[in-house]
Design a protein around this nucleic acid. Sequence first.
DNA 1: GTGAAAGCGCTAACAC
DNA 2: GTGTTAGCGCTTTCAC
Lengths: 344, 344
Amino acid sequence: MVVKRKSTSIKDIAKACNVSVATVSRALSKRGYVSEEKRVEIRNMAKKMGYIFNYNAQILQRGKSNTIGIIIADIENHFYHLVLKNLIIDFEKHGYKVLIAYSFENSDIERENLTSFLSSKVDAIIFTPISNKNEDLIKLINKQNVPLLQLFRQAYPYVDAVCVDDGHGAYLATKHLLEQELKNVLLLTVKLDFTPSRSKGYIQAHEELDLPVNKELICRYPLGVSIKDECRHFIKTHNVDAIIAGTNTFGSEVMEVMREEKINLPLIVFDELNWLKMLNVTTIAQPIDLIHKDVVENIMTKLNDKSYVTPTIGQNIRVKPVLIVRKSSNKKRKNSYSIDKTHN
Amino acid sequence: MVVKRKSTSIKDIAKACNVSVATVSRALSKRGYVSEEKRVEIRNMAKKMGYIFNYNAQILQRGKSNTIGIIIADIENHFYHLVLKNLIIDFEKHGYKVLIAYSFENSDIERENLTSFLSSKVDAIIFTPISNKNEDLIKLINKQNVPLLQLFRQAYPYVDAVCVDDGHGAYLATKHLLEQELKNVLLLTVKLDFTPSRSKGYIQAHEELDLPVNKELICRYPLGVSIKDECRHFIKTHNVDAIIAGTNTFGSEVMEVMREEKINLPLIVFDELNWLKMLNVTTIAQPIDLIHKDVVENIMTKLNDKSYVTPTIGQNIRVKPVLIVRKSSNKKRKNSYSIDKTHN
DNA sequence: GTGAAAGCGCTAACAC
DNA sequence: GTGTTAGCGCTTTCAC
């Protein structure tokens, strides 16, 4: 198992400098008084001996790690990493490290991640819940008063959440299509009991325009599996005028289906991503540069509250998305997701 | 700072069950013998008391963490996360956790990440080097016999590396364009002293076809900054027939430039990503489902070698990319990166 | 200013 | 099978 040379500790440095471990500790950290002379001597010796600070010992002693644990639900979702980037940068500024885990949209893995975070003594946890199956753990986290925040989804109503208002996004998208006289708008949304909001906005738009809602056109699919075949079948058997894809993954699959079947329906996709922009697709843009601010503020407030105790009801902070209209949602155009003809 | 209830330890459980801490430790881990009866009693008590295992104590005691540290150079590069996903899954199978850090293509942050990994007592480190500025740390890591591997780039020649053979990719791309009688092929490549390979393949293809190389057409740009304006200017002032974008970021920027300037040049982009496929762009595909195998094998071999000592020369494992020909590299077609005309 | 010493929670000899 | 005990490397009172 790899011959690992025992690494040098403050004890070794203490011996080499003829001082106590306490002095070395003080010299190396910023805490406590050490004469400038010794501080320099000790620091040089540490460098010379190839000293590596041992976090585990510090965390064990202090009982906290100065770390925020973040669970990303889908490693393939670029959008999550865009937000993650901002979170890392911001928490860094506040003196916190970020520990990242991936749940792969799987509750069991989420459970392991949460347990692992607790075992690592993280100071706070941010996660995108897959289900509400880990309630026992969530309650344990709350009991320990570890600040907890749900991101993008609120599976546990008594835990704070920062969510994009997808209902509003669906409303904007549906309205935009209905106003073009497109009657049969297919909504592809995610099968998550605790986020029915997309369909709400869909319905709201219909109601506002006094149009009947055909509930058959609201399709819920699970995350993490291909919907191409089901989608293909649905379009063929139903009289669909336009499509709203509730996630960019769905969007990408719909586009593939359309290309393969040589059909062209107006399309709006959730999430403003680079490739969608490039394809001239109308999107519902999540405000990437706002989300992290709410998250960081929520967590830092809890962390700085000397007497923080987990509240019994969670607040839901909603960030409003924006509809970015491009050509893909235009009724009159015929779209093709390829590049073999010029448009000049 | 958040009132955190002191969490229960094995000591508390020992007291509650009237046994010693050693017995609790044995009951909770798989190591050592405990009577079935006590094992069950202790486990139930642990659950009842909301016991959370403390990693830091274990790592401190054992001196190793069963963790592989991985540094991702660019959080926005989707390709890295595709590989990361495979790595996480594979290492998990081997019983190792993965600790992730991002260097944001910055050597100083890389240095912090490496130090942090060492402080966390990771068992091995995989990273995509930004520069060779952290040589002192790399040497320290080697001295500690912590298995180390460079991924995608080899900045330190004496450290093992798994790289995609970009030279070969550039060769394939250049050849493909030259064979279509496109003479002035612009190569946009990265400004990294330790990876001159793309230009080598570019030159090789010219030589094989007995064509002169115009070195002006090999442009090196730094990572992490927009090249749009420079690229725009270059195309306007030079007589460019076709473009090879050395990274997908460059590719995306080139496409934007072409769209904005309404010009259409044959294009080949490095990295096989979903949106490039959707845009019908010819790509140099990195073999995503092969890379991680070499990485995991390299690391696991070192980890399992009971008497592993860092070698003094590094081997460079090269994974060959493949050219996936689509419409964007076709001389005759006029391309447009939008969707406002059908192609049926 | 500096040192001695206790202890964070766990593991792993070593006894019995 | 089970208990005792000595640390792992660090921080932090509390003396001096």
